[in-house]
């Protein structure tokens, strides 16, 4: 490890310890690390957006490729800047409405495909009299009961309440499994960071 790398890794190790210090309580080291990382990332993101959005989607298409229809979305973008003027701020609402409306419209068929059609396909299975069939039947019952839980037009009492309760138990079983899986992933991240610190300390003392 060269001197420069040693210094940079030292800084990374120090900042990691500063962030870990939050586990004890809020303190000046954590505040320093927090503001440094938030500030640096905001600056980095600004430059990244400048290149990926402004250069690639405004400068290049309009001035280099002469695709003048890009002026229309550019005007919508400029209208967002009217928020700084009390008199003209209402113009920015047009851009916002356009942006959210288009995004929702584009998302609809994809959501229909991923959330409804694909789910329907996966749920239409043949039920056989073996373990695989019993598994499919259990999943199907859980699925139908979970759907009933998200039925808002009827009070969840009586027989419907029972079905709904089976639905929420099914969801909780799924969430429990998801929780365990993710905690394992987080522990891996922690181990990775602790190993980084250990390696750095060993390198520092020439081990």
């Amino acid at each position: 490890m060269g001197t420069a790398e040693l210094l940079w890794n030292g800084l990374a190790a120090l900042l990691t310890l500063f962030i870990f210090s939050f586990l004890y309580r809020d303190n000046v080291f954590y505040k320093f690390a927090e503001r440094l990382v938030a500030g640096v990332s905001a600056g980095y993101w600004t430059i990244l957006l400048y290149h990926t959005s402004f250069t690639d989607k405004v400068i290049v298409p309009i001035f280099e490729q002469q695709h003048y229809w890009y002026i229309i979305p550019s005007i919508l973008g400029i209208m967002m800047w009217t928020r700084f003027s009390r008199k003209w701020a209402w113009l920015s609402r047009i851009s916002l409405a356009f942006y959210i409306g288009i995004a929702t419209g584009v998302a609809l068929p994809i959501a229909m495909y991923a959330s409804i059609y694909r789910q329907l396909q996966a749920s239409m299975v043949s039920i056989s009299l073996d373990w695989a069939g019993i598994n499919s039947a259990l999943v199907t019952i859980g699925l139908l009961c979970s759907l009933a839980y998200f039925y808002f037009s009827k009070e969840h009492d009586g027989w419907f309440g029972g079905i709904s309760r089976v639905g929420i138990y099914t969801l909780m079983i799924g969430f429990g499994a998801g929780f365990g899986l993710t905690v394992m992933g987080r522990i891996s991240l922690l181990i990775d960071r602790v190993l980084f610190l250990k390696d750095y300390v060993l390198t520092l003392f020439g081990a």
Partner: peptide
């Protein structure tokens, strides 16, 4: 306020 677009720096700021 706008904090930052990056996930974990954003978390650090909101926790603060």
């Amino acid at each position: 306020p706008y904090v930052t677009a990056m996930q974990f720096p954003y978390v650090a700021a909101v926790n603060g």
